[in-house]
Design a binder for these strands. Sequence first.
DNA 1: AACGTGTGGTAGC
DNA 2: TATCGCTACCACACGTT
Length: 853
Amino acid sequence: MDDDKLLAILESSQEGEERGLGPEERDPAETLGRLSDDALIEYMTNLSQGARKDFTREEYFRDKEIKQRERDEATRAGLGRANAPIFAGCTIYINGYTKPGRLQLHEMIVSYGGKFQHYLLAKKKVTHIVATNLPLKKRLEFRNYRVVRPEWITESIEQQKLLPWQDYALSWDQEQRSLQLKVASAPVSSAVDCKDPNFLKTFFENSRLHHLSNWKADLRSRFLSEGFNKPSPGDALSIFHIDFDCFFATVAALGCESCDINRDPIVVCHGSKSSDIASCNYVARKYGIRNGMWVSRAKSLLPPGVELVSLPYNFKEIEEKSKIFYTVLKEYKIKFDLILPISIDEAVCVVIDHHTPHPIDRDEICRELRSEIWKRTGGCTVSIGCSNTLVLARLNLKIAKPNGYHILTQQQLVENEADWHSYLGKFQIDDLPGIGYSIVSKLRSLRQHLNNLLQLKQYFHNSLPLLQKCVGKKTGSKILMYLHGKDDEESSRMIFEPESFFARKSLSIEINWGIRFDTVQEIDNFIDTCADYLVQKLQEMNKRTSQITLKVLRRCADAPIEPPKYLGCGECDALSHNCRLGIPTSELGVIATELKSTFRLLGCPPKDLRGVSIQFNKLIEVSYDQNENQQRLKLPFQKTLNFDVFDNLPSDVKNDFSKELKRRNIVLTSSPRPKTSYAATYEEKFMEELPTQIRNEVKNDLRINRKITRTKLSELREQNRKKKESIRNVRAHLLGHESLFEPIKFQKESRFKDICRIVMEWFDATLIEGPHEKDLLLFENYLDKLSDSNRVPLILRFSKLISVRLNLKSNQYGQEAGFQEWEQFLLKNVIPKLNKNKHTFQTVRKLDIDFDI
DNA sequence: AACGTGTGGTAGC
DNA sequence: TATCGCTACCACACGTT
């Protein structure tokens, strides 16, 4: 019966031709063979539950698509960075017969940075279609696409740049020509719909905060790669905190002929109403306008007759000015021991006093730096705060702004209490670094009218415990340090341990604007795009991650569907969940799968999703040894640690051991035996894939188990009994020990791992001409025995092995008869055996985890 | 006490 | 037309072992 259901689903995909699909898409066996493991399991689960929902053809293709994209990634990665990303941002579909052929074009596109769409299902995604001629039907279907001749690809590669597609358009009617014009006249793609594959790119291109963060990360990594002198604690220092005055606004104003930065209120922003003000000049500030304020509010602050000047961002120019800024600092006649990058327009320069033969003239340094930067940037002013501690340099900077400098040392200030008090009286509480509205409101909850630092000092003069109780232990002592003009431990790290302070410990992105989805599929696609972006960065850094966090913004129950800010996230609850990967990875497939499954765990209705954030938390440097299949980690343990040894340990010790092994990412191997090179690499591969997928199964199991608990309480006891029994048996069987059951033999082998090896070798040897009928019968016989004795997880293992293997080989052998016979066998003879005993299947699957730690 | 998780705050324009 | 509300890091509260 299950077979029938399966066939029915597969047959429904035979209608490929009518839907305008190429011939390749019509082979259902191939489709199943290429399913990801998770999709396969989900499918099997569905079958075993009596098809809870239809697993549609579209879903098959979508999943297949993901797999293929992963392969494309691998192809690209295999090339190194040899080819220019000519087709970056292009998603290309090839229709019908072409010259050069589909395969060659595919490779060209992928290796030059493009995306290849195997099917036209997700029509929105495709940016170009390649074809040489089109039947009438297709012309109609494609009339809204950019259809080009294959020469567009080949000649773009020849000339090493993306040629205008219009020159290669395969145009056939008026409509197509008008499309050409329309697209040609459109300035740049401004994908504001989060379902558009280019959304992430356009969003980031226009996001000031993204740029700020990105620039900062770049500056930090550059800082670490260049040399510096690290002071020792106790060294006398001169600290210059240098910062542009309203940087974005100044840069924008310099590029605007008609406006005067000293006369007009100028703001930098995208829009005209609910748009954030990135930066405003000091004329605007006079009216109470502030950075971060919405434009509408800013406008309302201006008196009648005064017009607000809104200027667009000029990120490129900003970058240029910043480059000049840092160059000036580096080339200054007095060599700074440290040039600490705070942000794109802000740096802290440190001179270790005893490094210079004569005492330095701080006034002169401030004056010279300011005028030099003003000259070289063509009119940007910086302000400088100078002192001998970081916190005072920052406070002095506040006094210096705009367009000035201020020098005062801690000794000068604290010497005379009256001076110190009048100094403190000049500052708001949140002028202190690291103190924002939240801490201020906590302090005010204790005493309403705390306004400036002097009042703060007087209120808490000697009561550290009270302060700490109010704002937390560290924050409390930090504030008290600041009130004496000293740096706390954490900010001192910037100077005394810059290597660790500026080292990257995590990698993340978040998008909390423009997020409006309807279905989980769309979100999956978006997560794929995000993961793709992050993984690329991760690989560029030559790192791997072992912990991933997904954070989601979910519209508050009582918040309006559309918030006041256009496409903003509005009022949201933040939900986050992290998951650990058994083995550090930088593989897109593993990471994306994990994320998508985590999203489901968070249980946010697709329509209420307002923000997505993905973080890689534990980053690990990839060493050469790790590249070599992590041999180094394993080898020292291989002699002493194998399953047999492990299994003989007392159970409590075993528990400790497994935790420690997990922490160190050490995978237990089977007992030493001469391995063929193939078996070794295969095993590695398999082991590597297990942990993450097994976790997904657990999640699935939990869900299913809950369901069972609710509906079939009486069966639960029996299930548990069975489960315990089979844990013993399966373990024993896998380890080749005595068991309640006779060990089941196949080809004279009884150890499961050995049987796997044989089957895989057999599989590889028969990929072309196909397995012999008699052999298949023997194997099926073995599977039946497994099934009869309740050893369903082992059958599941075989399904996985074969499916993974098929996937691996599909590029090379996909067309071979043997390949297709194996697919059929998996489909008709292996998978159905999983459903013989539903409950056992569902619960026993969990054994895999117990076993593999 | 030592660790892990999820949440929240802060900084740059 | 709108609009582009990022991201690294620390600290905290609370839970587990």
